[in-house]
């Protein structure tokens, strides 16, 4: 069929009105492909029919529009809801491998992390213990340094007058050293060479002032306290003596228990 025959066949009109049979439809669509310029002819017919339909239009009830629009948009929303599970089903079959890899990687990372964490915790714990030990050592050393410094200050004080108290026949090996500050009268004692006092007993210092013994304070000789200790002050004294008394001291010296003495 050539172009003119086709145009005069009336098939294009049938097609434009969508009343052509399937065979006629096929002929029209093939002919339109063959002669694209016929599309304009088709469109002219369609536009004429469209205008004819508009002239014969009837306004639908006013309520129809809102119903249709809300239904169309609601159905659109429903359709999205409907398609969502379909997509997820597809994903279930398409992506399990991906999830397996993710899960495996996550598990390896988790185990690795636990191992590393445990090892770090051990190291941390050890380091903390070491630190505590070191800090204690330093503290002890600082204390002993401080005590030593105090000792040194007393010993090297230019006003310090050292008095050596020598052992009595009762304790011939005992020695004690007093540092008597000439400017202040302060008395310090170094008990390092006194024997440790027996349980329930304590050494007590006495100053002999105008022939009478005056209490000079208790001397601590427990282990670890063998440092120079500050005693009571004496403005003047004829002699110093140390006796072994009951713990807490006595108001008057027990002369039989005198261990060291020095006359000034």
């Amino acid at each position: 069929m050539n172009k003119e025959e086709f145009i005069s066949s009336g098939l294009l009109e049938l097609y434009a009105m969508r009343i052509s049979s399937p065979e006629e439809t096929q002929i029209v669509e093939e002919t339109l492909k063959q002669f694209p310029e016929l599309k304009q002819e088709l469109e002219d017919i369609e536009i004429s029919l469209e205008e004819y339909a508009q002239v014969n239009a009837i306004e639908p009830p006013a309520s129809a529009k809102e119903k249709i629009i809300s239904r169309v948009f609601a159905e659109g929303a429903n359709e999205e809801n409907k398609t969502a599970p379909v997509i997820s089903i597809n994903k279930k079959t398409a992506i399990p491998m991906f999830y397996k890899w993710i899960a495996a990687a996550a598990l390896i990372l988790l185990i690795g992390s636990i191992i590393v964490n445990y090892s770090y915790y051990e190291k941390y714990h050890d380091a903390k213990q070491e630190l505590i030990t070191a800090q204690r050592t330093i503290e002890q050393q600082q204390k002993s340094n401080q005590a030593m410094n105090q000792d040194m200050e007393i010993v090297t004080n230019k006003y310090a007058e050292p008095v050596l108290l020598k052992g009595t026949p009762k304790a011939p090996d005992a020695v004690a050293k007093i540092f008597w500050m000439k400017n202040t009268g302060d008395v310090y004692i170094n008990p390092t060479n006194l024997p440790q006092a027996p349980a329930g007993k304590q050494y007590q210092l006495w100053g002999i002032v105008d022939g009478k013994p005056v209490d000079g304070g208790m001397i601590r000789t427990e282990k670890g306290t063998y440092h120079i200790q500050k005693m009571k002050s004496f403005g003047k004294a004829d002699a110093f003596a140390i006796t072994l008394e009951k713990a807490g001291g006595s108001p008057t010296p027990t002369m039989s228990e005198m261990v060291v003495i020095a006359k000034m």
């Binding site: 469209e50 339909a53 014969n56 239009a57 639908p60 129809a64 529009k65 249709i68 629009i69």
Partner: peptide
Amino acid sequence: AFAYLYDNYSAALYGI
């Protein structure tokens, strides 16, 4: 665009 489609063609379609 759908609302425009309705405004312009609903009466012609309703007539049919």
